[in-house]
Design a protein around this nucleic acid. Structure first.
Lengths: 327, 327
DNA sequence: ATGAAAGCGCTAACAC
DNA sequence: GTGTTAGCGCTTTCAT
């Protein structure tokens, strides 16, 4: 068994109170008492028991980051930044992976974690705003990414409509007219996808072009294979001169399909992605993409968590279009 | 404040013991008592306090996965699998990111986490076996990845020497003779890199070829940019006809450099990577690579954690060479 | 500046 | 089948 506060106290010949004071850096401890206690601590290898502390303070210093999949590059990069920023603030991040499973997401929302964490950063995939509203758990919650409909929770996202318009405008500006999109979500789950689609349509319309239904390709998930598949389907009907993919992963999959069909990027088909994951910076050719400011997202979300209690806010993080070699 | 066991007990008109029994699915509870208690639980929105439970049981159900960077695809994929498998075993994974910082790794080893976690899966970057031996913390530890020198801890890794030999042999079998490597670590930190280098040399030697010092390129880190840089340097002296990269990320960076110089893969230069990350499956051309069985690694590591107490073992996980389009 | 002791919420040994 | 209660390790009020 590990040494307890009392063991140290006995060893040093003082009371537990004094040891506690030393451990917590309390000011009023006689210097030599402090030295003696510290020596006992070292000798016994004492480590404070976090569970007991938590029970006392009813706060754990732990926050949960809930994502569909941690090995999806966007989430991996977001997680890395979140962990780093949280560390700076004295917080530890516990990562939960739902695999996009509705039941797991619901469980998490309703406090499966018990009082283990002080707050939850939640990137939903399957649950809808209504589920959020029905939440019974009381731990502070901040939503990551778009969601629509009124839900009584803070959320941090970029302006997806504006970002999609910029991406589309850029494609139009480089002379493309047959612009397709890949990444429409079949079920109405994914608000980000819906907003990106809306932005794309708006910009087309503003330019005087009518949307073509066959150019709006749905995908089941947002993996490379889905982008690959969707691109092949797109090529079966008509070859577009540009494709706006709702994630970089989809874009990379699409590029692979183009390469296999012997089509050149960007000469035959221009590609724009979304997320600015590292792979896109090193793909051949390098991927033009919408870059959400992930540091800001993490940072703002952590702020929102800390500021809970105030009325729920909708926080917009910055983004920018990064033009590389695919356009 | 949240409802406590006692609140539920009072509300249902029973003792805490009975409520505890219901919560924990104890058998001997009268059916109607159970129903009544359950109703109170739901009504009050009771959730067990994990801290109190932990204090009682002195086990948290939490394990830490310590990696240099969670957004490095290999670690992201390993983490995803570890989280998934741990979930199956009723364990929650807390992810710690050290950024390869020696001090942070040291702190973690010496129990910074207090009694927060029941075990640690540690993928070291900066600390050496000697540091491990000097460990004072008592939580079970399993090392992920190669390390050499005797350290009194379990570790799970693939056979890096054999894997490197297979990769090299494959390159030789396809007629390549000027085979370079990218990924040598300047300081002797990284045991995996050293073993891969050893395997490469052994195979060359077995084939009757002498190693050429200029073809063994060092890198500082294992990112794409390092691979890119190293490849450019390699091309400045002599163009090899094949490159064995010690990670897929290095390989992808190298491929980008080759593309920029107008060299074709695999016609001019064949490439083999290591790790089998998803990006490599979708790169153009798709990357030949050594694939460590990540599920097995995660699973064996969790087993080892559970089996602690026995003398430290060195556990070998399987791997295989996956031939794709770059060779 | 230090000691004594209550209590955070839960579990389980011991009653009945 | 259910009630009572000690105690997990820590912090902190109250007392000295």
């Amino acid at each position: 068994m590990n040494a307890r506060l009392r063991d140290v106290a006995e060893h040093a010949g003082v009371s537990v109170r004094t040891v506690s004071n030393v451990v917590n850096g309390f000011r009023y401890v006689a210097p030599d008492t402090r030295t003696r206690v510290q020596a006992s601590i070292d000798e016994l290898g004492y480590r404070p028991n976090l569970a007991a502390r938590t029970l006392r303070h009813s706060r754990t210093g732990l926050i949960a980051l809930v994502v569909p999949e941690i090995d999806s590059p966007y989430f991996a990069e977001l997680a890395a930044r979140t962990v780093r920023i949280a560390q700076h603030r004295g917080l530890t991040v516990l990562i939960d992976q739902t695999d996009g499973d509705f039941e797991r997401e619901r469980l998490l929302l309703h406090g499966k974690r018990g009082q283990l964490v002080d707050g939850v950063l939640f990137s939903p995939w399957a649950v809808a705003p209504a589920d959020l509203a029905a939440r019974t758990d009381t731990v502070p919650l901040v939503l990551l990414g778009e969601h629509d409909g009124p839900a009584p929770v803070d959320h941090v996202a970029i302006d997806n409509v504006a970002a999609a318009r910029e991406a589309t405008r850029h494609l139009l500006a480089t002379g493309r007219r047959r612009i397709a999109v890949i990444g429409v979500q079949p079920r109405t789950l994914n608000a980000s996808a819906r907003q990106r689609l809306a932005g794309y349509r708006q910009e087309l319309e503003a330019f005087g072009l009518a949307p073509v239904v066959d150019r709006e390709r749905p995908v089941r998930r947002l993996h490379r294979s889905d982008g690959y598949q969707a691109m092949l389907e797109l090529l079966d009907s008509e070859t577009p001169d540009a494709v706006f993919c709702f994630t970089d992963q989809l874009a990379l999959g699409a590029m692979r399909a183009l390469a296999e069909r012997g089509l050149s990027v960007p000469d035959d088909v221009a590609i724009v992605g979304f997320d600015d994951i590292e792979d896109g910076r090193y793909s051949v050719p390098a991927l033009t993409t919408v870059s959400p400011d992930k540091d800001q997202i993490a940072s703002l979300a952590l702020d929102a968590l800390a500021a809970q209690g105030k009325p729920p806010r909708s926080i917009i993080a910055p983004h920018e279009l990064i033009v590389r070699a695919t356009t």
